[in-house]
Nucleic acid binder design. Structure first.
Length: 277
DNA sequence: TCTGCATGAAAAA
DNA sequence: TTTTCCTGCAGAG
């Protein structure tokens, strides 16, 4: 599920497998041929994630006359998975390319395939700056400032449920973390941002940092506390309080979980635990 | 095996 | 507001 934790996990894995190595790039599908040609033969200097965006910083290629500058100004690959995008990965030898394979990256040891992404493009450092400037703080980045998000939230009449999904307010949170975070703090999804107290917001942020870091480690979103879920294996269903549990009893109070379309996305909540103030 | 739904965001209309 | 990207999963049968 590509919420922020997925992208940070991918960045970490790709850094491990391809960082500081010369990378071969191709676009068997043909939709990214020109971009792949730009990257082919360069060294991956750094892979990082910002919210749901993945960035690869590549080396300058002096063999074609690119001169080192004060800035580390090699080409940058920008990927946004969107709803369907997916990376597959493995050790060499790589499988025969099949289907709509937008981008394949490989080195002597590993390969990784990108399909279905919303964005897969070469960008400049200036474009990266613009991208980051339009994103709110990302709980998975150390330098992130929760006050920057609160400045937006505390001024807004928009519902907290909508604000949490707005990448300009907060980067990396998607529909699952949104629903689960609201439940964990017993917050009415429809309450306006300006009614959220600063102390509560800071607690929510801190919780998000913990939950999302665990998500990076495990590769999945688990928000239920052990005491609130049935014993045994933590299946996907058991890992959430409200997400995709419409009509089922709340794990805390037993009330039927409700769902409603909000800004084009399904919102899940417990009308009792998260009753309006 | 088939069908519907799903994590997101940008472009098109 | 609708369409696009076009994958993978779960549940039904």
């Amino acid at each position: 599920m590509p919420e922020g934790h997925t992208l940070h996990r991918l960045a970490r894995d790709q850094q491990r497998r391809f960082g500081s190595t010369v990378v071969h790039a191709s676009s068997p599908q043909g939709r990214f041929t020109a971009g792949a040609q730009v990257l082919d033969g360069r060294t991956l200097l750094r892979a990082e994630a910002y919210g749901k965006h993945l960035l690869h910083h590549y080396s300058l290629d002096e063999s074609i006359g690119e001169a080192p500058t004060a800035e580390p100004g090699g080409p940058i690959l920008h990927v946004h998975l969107g709803l369907y995008g997916k990376f597959a990965a493995g050790s060499q030898p790589a499988p025969e390319p099949r289907g709509a394979l937008r981008l394949r990256l490989s080195n002597d040891e590993f390969w990784t395939d990108l399909r279905g992404a919303t964005a897969c493009e070469i960008v400049t450092p200036d474009q990266v700056d613009l991208l980051i400037a339009r994103l709110g703080p990302d709980p998975l980045r150390r330098s992130a400032d929760p006050a920057r998000a609160f400045a937006r939230i505390s001024r807004s009449r928009v519902s907290i449920a909508a604000l949490l999904m707005d990448q300009a307010v907060l980067a990396g949170v998607g529909n699952v973390y949104r629903a689960e975070l609201l439940f964990r703090h017993r917050l009415d999804p429809m309450c306006p941002g300006k009614s959220v107290a600063e102390q509560l917001w800071l607690e929510m942020w801190s919780d998000l940092v913990t939950l999302m870091r665990a998500g990076v480690r495990s590769g999945r979103i688990v928000t239920t506390r052990p005491e609130d879920r049935p014993a045994g294996r933590v299946t996907r269903e058991r890992s959430h309080y409200v997400y995709r549990r419409t009509g089922q009893p709340c794990r805390v109070c037993g009330t039927a979980i409700r769902t409603q379309l909000l800004v084009g996305r399904n919102l899940f909540w417990c009308p009792s635990c998260q009753a309006p103030a």
